[in-house]
């Protein structure tokens, strides 16, 4: 009971803090181009911004809505505020939080999950900030290493390496469940190769299929357990 009160108070203050820092970050990010423009003696062309937004921005708006709906339950309150502020969700924050949650065996929707996801996202964001800051400071000496043709294939394949490792971790839990969305995706990408440029959107049907299959299995198992 005491724990429940502590957790509720923590959640309430997390939402308040999350909203405040999100609004401040939004103001800073939208204000930065104007500030830089003032420094350079040129301001953004708002007409061009509006036109460009209609041609490219709407796609990302839809993507943002989907990301919000899908990732918020995974990350909990603190984790999702931080993740949406710090970005790089698919290629880092989501797998990172899922990995941490897995390691400590935290259950979704619990206080433990909320704490672990926030710790994980905050750590991940800080590591990125430090690596990027060091990289910017050491840009000149690091350039030959980072842009070396020998290492180029390694850096071109960070995401496949990440998903290869995560695939083993998750597929082994339920190979049959994994087999169906994987097969469907292979068939789709093979028959419509242009979909490759929209892989992040294909997560939605693939994830929906996996969740639907998981739901049927869960229903069957819970009905079986009730009968016994």
């Amino acid at each position: 009971m005491e724990n429940q009160k502590t957790y509720e108070a923590y959640l309430k203050s997390t939402h308040r803090l999350g909203r405040i820092v999100s609004v401040i970050t939004l103001i800073l990010l939208v204000g930065a181009p104007f500030a830089i423009g003032a420094l350079l003696g040129a301001e953004p062309d708002l007409g061009a911004v509006a036109r460009a937004f209609l041609s490219v921005g709407l796609v990302w708006t839809v993507s943002s809505v989907v990301e919000f709906l899908v990732y918020t339950p995974m990350l909990g309150a603190g984790g999702s505020y931080l993740a949406f502020i710090t970005g790089n969700l698919i290629n880092m924050k989501i797998p990172c939080a899922m990995n941490a949650k897995e390691l400590v065996n935290a259950k979704s929707g619990t206080a433990e999950n909320e704490v672990i996801a926030t710790l994980s996202i905050a750590t991940s964001a800080l590591v990125t900030i430090v690596v990027l800051a060091l990289g910017v400071v050491l840009l000149i000496p690091l350039q030959p290493v980072l842009q070396s043709p020998v290492l180029a294939p390694a850096f071109d394949n960070v995401v496949p390496a990440l998903f290869g490792a995560m695939a083993y971790k998750y597929y082994r839990k339920d190979p049959l469940l994994a087999l169906i969305p994987l097969t469907v995706m292979i068939v789709l990408f093979t028959l419509v190769p242009s979909l490759t440029s929209s892989t992040s959107f294909m997560i939605i049907p693939s994830g929906a299929l996996a969740i639907a299959l998981s739901w049927f299995k869960y229903r069957r198992e819970t009905k079986g357990a009730v009968r016994k």
């Binding site: 899908v70 339950p73 995974m74 698919i90 989501i94 797998p95 899922m98 259950k107 979704s108 929707g109 619990t110 995401v159 496949p160 998903f163 290869g164 995560m166 695939a167 998750y170 597929y171 839990k173 339920d174 469940l177 994994a178 969305p181 994987l182 469907v184 995706m185 292979i186 789709l188 990408f189 093979t190 028959l191 190769p193 979909l195 490759t196 892989t199 294909m202 997560i203 693939s206 994830g207 929906a208 299929l209 996996a210 969740i211 299959l213 998981s214 739901w215 869960y218």
Partner: peptide, 28 residues
């Protein structure tokens, strides 16, 4: 109580995400 299908749904969503990427590599 907490738990239930929530964990399975999150794991399934992640399996879907990984499958989309690996599917794109195979299709590519």
């Amino acid at each position: 109580k907490g738990g239930g299908f929530g964990d399975k749904a999150m794991a399934a969503m992640f399996i879907g995400m990984v499958s989309a990427y690996i599917g794109s590599y195979v299709g590519g």
